[in-house]
């Protein structure tokens, strides 16, 4: 069965060329030219790998997609771009792509990058399988692991300590003591840090307004989010965005 590759590129000539190269090398290819088309194709086409241009109709729209892929779905992606400046490279690193292909590129560059990404994906899956079969010494106890998974899944909402206690199955004091021992901070601090990390990433890589980001992270008001962010980074969300997004 052919490997499915989604190409997200708004330049018709470049996307046609990439499609021809991939067709000739035995891949099943689909083309998209926007954020919404890409998100739709994740369900309909089910790609195993994505080639992603950084600038689509909007500047940095590709990084926004990369950010989504990194946080929501486990599909490897490779950026294709003419950017080589340090600021852009720093920005794309936060979205954890498996590769980076600089324009102008050759056929061999595309194929080598894809083969390497697919090989790494397979190796990582094999490793996960092995670790499932022969579990190493666990870092976290099962109740704490359940609480961390709960936080990860519900990071976009207000997370109450009572809920964490419930999923852990422990008593309140035992849970708080064990959490601090295993994770190195209190549940409140951990949730706060995770929310602020996500907020920083969204401010750097998306076009969402501060109000939307606050809402996405479960804050009921703009000012409570702004106060929290200032406490975390020393900058207001809008100043943070100005500083890191050129």
């Amino acid at each position: 069965m052919k490997t499915k590759v989604l190409v997200v590129e708004d330049d018709k000539l470049v996307s046609y060329e990439i499609k021809s190269i991939l067709d000739n090398n035995g891949f099943d290819v689909d083309i998209c030219d926007s954020y919404s088309c890409c998100i739709k194709n994740l369900d309909t086409f089910k790609p195993e790998l994505i080639l992603l241009d950084i600038d689509l109709h909007k500047k940095y729209e590709g990084i926004q997609i990369g950010s989504y892929l990194n946080s929501k779905v486990n599909i490897p992606f490779i950026y294709i771009t003419g950017y080589t400046d340090v600021e852009t490279l720093k920005r794309i690193q936060t979205t954890k792509p498996v590769g980076y292909l600089s324009k102008p590129f050759r056929e061999i560059d595309i194929i080598n990058n894809i083969e390497l990404a697919l090989y790494n994906k397979k190796a990582s899956l094999d490793n996960n399988k092995k670790s499932e079969e022969q579990p190493e010494e666990r870092k976290y106890s099962k109740p704490i692991k359940r609480a961390l998974e709960y936080i990860d899944t519900n990071i976009n909402q207000e997370i109450k300590t009572d809920e964490l206690i419930r999923v852990s199955g422990w008593s309140k004091f035992h849970f708080i003591r064990e959490f601090a021992k295993e994770v190195g901070m209190t549940p409140y601090q951990y949730i706060f840090d995770e929310k602020m990390k996500l907020a920083s990433s969204k401010l750097k890589n998306t076009y969402q307004t501060v109000k939307e980001i606050a809402f996405d992270l479960g804050y009921t008001s703009n000012s409570s989010f702004t106060n929290a962010f200032v406490k975390h980074s020393g900058l207001s969300p809008s100043n943070f965005r100005k500083k890191y997004c050129r």
Binding site: L13, V14, N24, G82, K103, F105, R106, R246
Partner: peptide, 27 residues
């Protein structure tokens, strides 16, 4: 610096178009 960065980025994209045209004519 912004203009130079932008120009370099644009130029590389334009070179890519040139290469793509050559490859499309073959394919």
């Amino acid at each position: 610096r912004e203009v130079l960065d932008k120009t370099l980025h644009r130029f590389k994209n334009n070179l890519q178009t040139q290469l793509s045209l050559m490859n499309i004519q073959t394919s």
